[in-house]
Amino acid sequence: MKIGVLISEGPYTHQAADSAYKFVSAALAAGHEVPRVFFYHDGVNVATRLSLPPQDERHIQQNWTALAKEHEVDLVVCVAAAQRRGLLDEGEANRNGKDANNIAEGFRISGLGQLIEMGIQTDRLVTFGD
């Protein structure tokens, strides 16, 4: 089965990004396809590469980056939600006159159309959030 995943709550504050990670890992291990994970609302904060959790805690962003690399999962961050919350890639930073960017490897910033497209192209859309 082709499964799309939406994460709509922030890392560490909420279990959503962790549960989604476990779910996607299990789905891939079971032979399902997960072509894309979409990050919305505070979920976009998963994508910052500046996160520094204590060493004995899981690193949510690095977990996702590694999973995306191994299984070619498209990790998409909503541009409007990301801009509100200060999550930028190099292009966005340059275009908006900001002196830094913070998006982690394996994530890309794009529009909400990618969420709708995921809903159209997958057999199931599974949301992790409140």
Binding site: Y40, G111, L112, G113, L115, I116, I120
Partner: peptide
């Protein structure tokens, strides 16, 4: 999301 989705 609804406004973007309406274009699809």
């Amino acid at each position: 999301v609804v406004l973007i989705g309406a274009a699809f």
